[in-house]
Design a protein around this nucleic acid. Structure first.
Length: 297
DNA sequence: ATGTGTTCCTGTCCGC
DNA sequence: TGCGGACAGGAACACA
């Protein structure tokens, strides 16, 4: 589900509710998401103060006051929902059906909170992690060595940071026979891109997604760097893309989906000024790719 | 080392 | 309306 802009939107939504707050109670309602949760996960969160909420690629990183970082990946269907606590409520988290019913309702989950897997209570808010497909993940890792986490250590440069530029991308693509579409989805080349924003960036640059990654001219790689930055910035500004059930942590919908040029627009006219092409869908490495066969070369 | 196909899981939508 | 199949924002893993 969420790509970099959606995760950044979630981070910004959670930040005011979480940073500086103390986790008064935590509950894992099952022992695993995609993988087993760490030993004594909920107990190790309880009593901790959240010092900062950061993002690396599609991972949320909550830095705690004991030197550990609580790491979360939302997978395809994970989401956080925040509920303000009523003043002075002392009801145990597991006995607040009202809040859970509200969480389920907001999530559009007819199962009555069946997929609400992790619950976090702070002195100010109730945080519910919901993930029907359970492709998400959580872990605890020392903050000082967070970049050595197995899930983070091979991830490429942040596309909105200084380490991502024409030289780094050209080197990452050099000599590769895989398609540019597949290469950009590979998190080792550049962090945080997923199916939507790869398709959109390639459309903005006019590059055929089926072209070999290593055969793209330096000039076009430079244009691709700019297009990736621009499409991510535009999407963050719009609060991300709301497809199906994605919502911001505030419950608001993002609206970048209304600005898609090609993603999920098979058979619709190309949005480029003067182009008479039609959006096509092909499958590359098992994923749908949307592009205009006329203006993307 | 690369590239690709499979797999995890549940929900939704579309055609018959 | 029910049923089966395709498909979904991810990415680790197995295997050529």
């Amino acid at each position: 589900m969420p790509e970099l802009p959606e995760v950044e939107t979630v981070r910004r939504g959670l930040e005011p509710a979480l940073v500086g707050r103390i986790i008064t109670r935590a509950e894992a309602r099952r022992p695993d998401l995609r993988w087993p949760l760490p030993e004594r996960f909920a107990e190790r969160l309880e009593g901790r103060r959240i010092e900062a909420l950061a993002r690396r690629s599609k991972y949320l990183l909550a830095h705690l006051d004991d030197g550990m970082t609580w790491l979360t990946h939302l997978g395809m269907s994970g989401r956080f929902t925040v509920f303000a606590r009523d003043g002075g409520a002392t009801t145990p988290l597991s006995e607040t059906p009202g809040a859970f019913a509200l969480a389920a309702q907001t999530a559009g989950d007819a199962g009555g909170g069946r997929h609400d897997h992790v619950l976090i209570e702070t002195d100010a808010a109730l945080l519910v992690y919901t993930d029907p497909r359970r492709f998400g993940a959580m872990d605890l890792w020392p903050t000082a060595e967070i970049e050595t986490h197995p899930l983070l250590k091979s991830i490429g440069p942040e596309p909105l940071g200084n380490a991502f530029h024409v030289d780094s991308l050209a080197e990452a693509l050099d000599g590769r026979s895989a398609s540019i579409k597949s290469a950009l989805l590979d998190q080792r080349r550049v962090a945080g891109l997923g199916n939507i924003y790869v398709c959109e960036a390639l459309w903005r640059t006019g590059i055929d997604p089926r072209r070999a990654a290593g055969g793209i001219s330096r000039k076009r790689v430079a244009e691709l760097v700019d297009a990736i930055r621009a499409v991510l910035a535009d999407a963050i500004e719009a609060g991300g893309s709301s497809l199906r059930d994605y919502r911001q942590a505030t419950g608001d919908l993002g609206y970048f989906q209304h600005r898609f040029a090609v993603y999920d627009r098979e058979d619709q006219p190309c949005a480029r000024e003067g182009c008479k092409g039609v959006v096509q869908r092909v499958v590359q490495s098992g994923r749908s790719t949307f592009f205009c066969g006329r203006c993307q070369r």
